[in-house]
């Protein structure tokens, strides 16, 4: 079991954003979380990655309790993510966006950095090499010196995923990766997700509204409404689930 979330509950003030959320992710799985807006999906990501501290419940990653850890420690343990609204380091170059994610990989300390010691040089060369490898895998090499803010939207999405992978995660959380894409691009994205999952041997948990993507990609789904899990199962099971239809389309009026 790679990730085990138990009875995760979070309150914003008096509002219960997530209540008793449970999830078990095996290595190599691709699982989706769906639900109407405001159902608490992103909050779950924020809880797993340590942005918020859970009011109750536990999150165990690779047998270690990570509840309450600082975000960068959690990332260091192998969970990386992207964001619903792209959050790149806007004024930095594409290359620097990637290199930033290598922070915890480099072994040189502050003093070695201040005086650019041999250790610094070796580590930096390694970081640069691996960053360029990532960039070329993601076909971003031509833009390495470009300020990331100036990239077209699609490339920004791609760069954000590349940056997340630079942190060498085992578990990748994708928050609405298809937002703002047309059906054609979504098909490309589906292939892309399968491809990175295989090549980087990832486990992927994703939030998405685009049903074609979710249904075509995910092995399992969790459906959330008002912070509660209302259904779980394979895409086929979910498709015909009554409560899911109600949550999305509203309750059927009885005559």
């Amino acid at each position: 079991m790679l990730l085990q979330v138990k009875d995760l509950t979070h309150y914003f003030g008096g509002l219960c954003a997530v209540s008793n959320f449970n999830l078990e992710l095996g290595s190599g799985e691709l699982v989706g979380i769906i639900g109407p807006n405001g159902a608490g999906k992103t909050t779950i990501f924020n809880l797993i990655t340590g942005v918020y501290r859970a009011s109750r419940g536990s999150i165990v990653f690779e047998g270690t309790e990570i509840t309450g850890m600082k975000p960068h420690r959690i990332t260091g343990r192998g969970i990386a993510r992207t964001f619903q609204n792209i959050r790149l380091f806007n004024n930095l170059t594409v290359l620097d966006n990637i290199r930033t994610a290598f922070y915890s990989e480099a072994a040189y300390g502050p003093l070695q950095a201040l005086f650019h010691s041999g250790r610094y040089r070796a580590d930096e060369r390694e970081i640069a090499r691996r960053s360029f490898d990532l960039l070329s895998i993601f076909r971003l090499s031509d833009y390495s010196g470009e300020i990331s803010r100036n990239l077209p939207y699609g490339l920004q999405r791609r760069l954000e995923i590349a940056r997340a992978l630079a942190a060498r995660p085992q578990l990748l959380l994708l928050d609405e990766p298809a937002a703002g894409m047309n059906p054609n691009e979504i098909r490309g994205l589906m292939d892309f997700i399968i491809w990175i999952k295989k090549n980087f041997s990832l486990t992927i948990l994703l939030i998405e509204h685009q049903m074609p993507l979710v249904m075509g990609l995910c092995e399992r789904l969790e459906v959330l409404d008002f912070g509660e899990t209302i259904a779980r199962g394979t895409p086929e099971e979910i498709r015909s689930n009554r409560r899911v239809l109600e949550a999305y389309l509203g309750e059927e009026q009885k005559p």
Binding site: T49, P71, H72, F83, R87, N90, T100, Y103, S104
Partner: peptide
């Protein structure tokens, strides 16, 4: 790069493993 990333987006920076 950590310093710069804090300027750009502190939360994203933390989530990319920057202490």
């Amino acid at each position: 790069r950590g310093i710069l990333s804090i300027r750009e987006d502190e939360i994203a920076s933390d989530l990319m493993g920057v202490n």
